[in-house]
Design a binder for these strands. Structure first.
Lengths: 156, 156
DNA sequence: TGACATCGACAACCATGTTGTCTACAGTGA
DNA sequence: TCACTGTAGACAACATGGTTGTCGATGTCA
């Protein structure tokens, strides 16, 4: 077959897009419209302890201003709440709400379901080996779900 | 191993990013700084016959204004030239320059080299099967290199 | 106590897309 | 031949999601 390198790149992008689009569409259908991958990552980082804008910025490799905007968006949609930090009057502590945890759980479920469909399609062993090879090729870069500023691609 | 669906998505994104970053960096080192995937796709479309802004817009599923901006960027960097169409005074015909063909060839070569490295790393048969499975999973969506507005992710 | 760091807010800017509007020109049919 | 309709490209305004720079308030440490 010997596809070209460019096609290979496109294939990866297509696979990612396919999963993410599925998730976005499904989440919208389940009452979480406008929920984008960026939000998912931010929410994860907040749940993991990034409880202020500056903190979130550092963890997601983005300026604190950008992080503040993301938090504002999450706040507006009810995925997080913020309150003044009693320990430090400069800070505002951000916390994930029940709705926030819900959207994370649903997102995970949707992606897991998509993965299951693929598993059925090409076989469990094949998918496992595909994943294993990807891990080798990509290395650690993809593992830290907290980090990427490179999730900016999104749906749009 | 049974990785989660979210990890799988991240893995795909990581693989894509890895290839694209390699290509962008390499191209920059070879005298094509600031050349982004979007430019690559536009250039390909132009070479394939999209010789006007409106045309390019249609082919890459983007507004003609956005296409015009992309053309302006390519123009500025010397990858295309434009001239009034003698047949139709409304149009400006866009053509890929030698430099434009060069960057396309180099890009292809760089990606091909990256693919070769992976082939060595995990084995030729493994890479082939990975690609074959991806083709099954992604379907036709990734094949038409001309289309995607979804290459907006980029380096930045 | 004073120097310095950090927090969040605000403003300005950039990149890359969008829509809407405008003028020039092409093509077509009465 | 002429009016109508469609299309090309230019321009303006705006949305999104980043950036940098600056500022006042607050914390921290010598």
């Amino acid at each position: 077959m010997s596809r070209s390198g460019a096609d290979l790149a496109l294939l990866f992008l297509g696979a990612y897009r396919s999963l993410v689009d599925t998730a976005t569409t499904e989440l919208a259908a389940r009452g979480h419209a406008e929920f984008k991958p960026v939000h998912e990552f931010a929410l994860r980082a907040i749940a993991a302890g990034a409880d202020s804008a500056s903190d979130l910025g550092r963890r997601t490799s983005v300026s604190k201003q950008a992080a503040a905007k993301t938090i504002a968006a999450l706040l507006e949609r009810g995925y997080v709440v913020s309150s003044p930090d009693p320990q430090d009057a400069r800070r505002k502590r951000v916390e994930v709400t029940a709705r926030g945890f819900d959207v994370m759980a649903q997102g995970e479920a949707v992606l897991e379901a998509a993965r299951k469909r693929w598993e059925i399609q090409i076989g469990s062993a094949q998918l496992a080996s595909l994943e294993a090879h990807l891990v080798i090729l990509v290395g650690d870069a993809a593992i830290q779900a907290d980090a990427p500023g490179w999730v900016a691609d999104d749906s749009q």
